[in-house]
């Protein structure tokens, strides 16, 4: 089945089984390797992408869900203004450790900044509550997103 969607701002079309997991479409067909598979069950968030402006676990979504939709992956977000701001903040705090979960955190944080952006720790924790990190104890991740919210406020 032919399915069209917008991927990181480009129109794309793919002819594949509509049940193909979205993560496999991104990694194997489009070589977008920033989307990681940590568990394959939606339990870790390493595969988080934005689908129609909402963060979703791409390992439990299917190609058909992207039909006529808009997808933004970590690679795409990294090129946006808010994405760049977030990357600066994650870098500033030395938050990144192994980094496997971070493209997912970038996506969820980006969504938070886009839709709310209040420098409020409790809200940030909720927004990131589908993303697991085993290295950092989350403290530096919270610091980074708070910092990004504050900088966004100023600009």
């Amino acid at each position: 089945m032919k399915i069209k969607f917008i991927l990181n701002k480009n129109e794309v079309e793919i002819d594949a089984n509509p049940m193909t997991r979205l993560i496999d479409v991104l990694r194997e067909h489009f070589q977008l390797l920033g989307t990681k598979e940590g568990c394959g069950e939606g339990e870790c968030g390493a595969c988080t992408i934005l689908l129609n402006d909402k963060p979703v676990a791409s390992c439990i979504a299917n190609l058909i869900h992207a039909e006529n939709g808009v997808i933004l992956t970590a690679e795409g977000i990294a090129k946006t203004k808010i994405g760049t701001l977030l990357i600066d903040c994650f870098d500033e705090t030395n938050a990144v450790q192994c980094g496997f979960c971070f493209p997912g955190f970038l996506v969820s944080s980006y969504h938070y900044l886009k839709t709310d952006g209040e420098p409020n720790l409790e809200k940030i924790k909720i927004a990131l509550s589908g993303n697991i990190c085993r290295c950092t104890g989350y403290q530096k991740i919270f610091d980074s997103v708070l910092m990004a919210c504050e900088k966004l406020d100023l600009s």
């Binding site: 989307t35 990681k36 970590a74 990294a78 030395n94 990144v96 980094g99 493209p103």
Partner: peptide
């Protein structure tokens, strides 16, 4: 100022390669 990690940015933008990549 803290010395930053050389691999943080590529890890964030998805270009740093892990085994399955």
């Amino acid at each position: 100022k803290a010395v930053k990690k050389f691999d943080a940015r590529p890890k964030l933008n998805g270009s740093w390669k892990f085994l399955d990549d």
